[in-house]
Simulated assay, not measured.
Amino acid sequence: MQNPRGADVFTTICWFIWNQRNKIRVKDIVAPLEKTSDLAQQYLMEFQQLRSKPVTKKLPKKVIWKPPDAGLLKTNFDGAAFEDLGAAGIGVVDRNSSSKVLAALFEIIPLPSSIVALETIAARRAILFLHELDLHGSILEGDSESSMLAIKN
């Protein structure tokens, strides 16, 4: 196995045999044994061709939090779904123009029917939180464009 290509072929054939064995155990359709070597090499060639194609990655736009203008507040809110628990979490943070946290809230709620619903509930709770604290002049900021559009309309 001095040849790296030979090692790749050998490893792929071993994997192919193991994979065929698993298919036999669950009574799935398998390729004839005499074709194993050819099929494994074809599989490896396809894999290597796909790997050699250049991948263009689009870097996510870096989001930088900006404080509000003097005299204003910024209220950030978000929701997180925990499907395995059947619950969701809502978080709200109020900051002033110096980026100082004035108030924060976290609540666990029953899992809503969708992420958009969760984000909308989080937005509503953020507004109620502002009223409870008697805070005025706040800019709302959330992740969900559709929720933010619904609130603006």
Results as ranks from 00 to 15, higher is better:
136 H>F: 05
32 P>K: 14
134 D>K: 15
46 E>N: 14
56 T>N: 13
63 V>P: 01
131 H>G: 02
18 W>R: 14
64 I>C: 09
87 A>T: 09
144 S>V: 09
58 K>M: 08
16 F>I: 01
79 G>E: 03
109 I>L: 06
9 V>T: 08
25 R>D: 08
149 L>N: 11
45 M>P: 00
120 T>M: 11
65 W>H: 10
111 L>Y: 05
68 P>Q: 07
95 R>A: 04
138 S>E: 08
140 L>S: 03
98 S>E: 15
124 R>H: 10
118 L>S: 03
103 A>Q: 03
130 L>C: 12
138 S>R: 08
65 W>M: 07
82 F>D: 04
103 A>H: 06
57 K>P: 00
132 E>Y: 04
10 F>T: 02
32 P>A: 15
137 G>Y: 06
114 S>N: 00
32 P>N: 15
115 I>M: 05
24 I>G: 00
105 L>H: 02
107 E>G: 00
37 S>R: 12
119 E>I: 03
147 S>R: 03
127 I>G: 02
66 K>G: 00
23 K>I: 08
119 E>P: 02
65 W>C: 07
78 D>R: 03
64 I>E: 12
44 L>N: 08
91 G>Y: 04
143 D>S: 01
35 K>D: 15
2 Q>K: 07
112 P>S: 10
117 A>I: 07
3 N>D: 14
94 D>T: 15
135 L>M: 11
141 E>F: 01
85 L>D: 13
97 S>Q: 05
36 T>I: 15
92 V>T: 01
33 L>F: 11
119 E>L: 01
138 S>G: 11
113 S>I: 01
87 A>I: 04
89 G>M: 03
33 L>S: 14
39 L>P: 00
69 D>P: 06
15 W>H: 12
51 R>G: 14
145 E>L: 13
101 V>W: 04
123 A>K: 00
38 D>C: 12
32 P>E: 14
60 P>Q: 14
140 L>M: 15
26 V>C: 13
12 T>K: 15
151 I>T: 02
14 C>A: 09
63 V>Q: 09
2 Q>M: 06
68 P>I: 08
122 A>N: 04
147 S>G: 13
55 V>F: 05
93 V>E: 01
78 D>M: 01
10 F>M: 11
117 A>K: 06
69 D>H: 13
140 L>A: 03
21 R>S: 08
101 V>G: 05
134 D>M: 11
49 Q>M: 14
41 Q>I: 11
65 W>P: 01
58 K>Y: 09
110 P>I: 02
